[in-house]
Simulated assay, not measured.
Amino acid sequence: MILEHALLSVRPGTEADFEAAFAEARTIIASMPGFEGLTLSRCLEQPSTYLLLVHWRRLQDHTEGFRGSVGYERWRALLHHFYEPFPTVQHYQEVLTA
C-alpha cells in the first residue's frame, strides 16, 4: 500500500468553503480504482493548514489512474483555487509499524 501525503495551505478565511468543497470532492477520489481511504485533518496551531493522507493500492493508481481521469478535472475545479502556495504531494511506502 502507498500513502500519499499532502500538506494543504488554504487561503485564510476560506476554510469553511474548502471543507465543504472537499466533502463533495471526496466522493470523486473514493470512486477511483486503487483508492483505499483518506483522512483530512486540520492543524490546531495553524487553522489554515490541512494534512491530507490518502491510501492507494499502488503508486500508479494515484499518479496515472486518478490524475489522468475525468474525475480529476472536477477535483481540480473544486479544490485547487483554495491553495496558496500549491501543495507538494509525496508518496510513502510503509517500512515499520508498532
Rank of each mutant, 00 (worst) to 15 (best):
S9A: 13
D61V: 03
E15Q: 12
S9Q: 08
L78Q: 02
T97G: 14
R42G: 00
G65Q: 12
E36Y: 12
E4H: 06
V54L: 05
S9Y: 11
P33G: 07
H62A: 00
E15S: 06
H81V: 00
F82E: 13
W56M: 01
T88I: 14
V70H: 04
E24K: 13
A25M: 08
P47I: 05
L96E: 05
T14G: 08
Q60W: 02
V10P: 00
F18D: 07
T14K: 10
A23I: 00
Y50P: 02
F18S: 00
Y83L: 08
S9L: 08
A30G: 08
L44N: 14
L53T: 06
D17C: 04
R57P: 01
T97V: 13
R58D: 11
E45H: 10
H80L: 13
A77M: 12
Y50Q: 01
F22N: 01
V10L: 04
F35T: 03
Q93Y: 06
F35E: 01
T27H: 11
Q46M: 11
T14Q: 15
A23W: 03
E73T: 07
V70F: 15
G13E: 07
F18A: 02
L53D: 00
G13K: 10
V70T: 15
T88F: 11
F66D: 03
S41T: 12
F22L: 05
L59V: 08
H91F: 05
T63I: 14
A23E: 15
A6I: 03
P33E: 09
C43E: 09
L51A: 06
R58H: 13
L53N: 12
R11S: 10
L7D: 09
I29M: 13
V54N: 01
R11D: 06
P85C: 05
S41E: 08
E73W: 15
F66V: 08
T27A: 15
C43L: 12
L78M: 10
P87F: 04
R58C: 05
L96M: 15
L3T: 06
Y72Q: 02
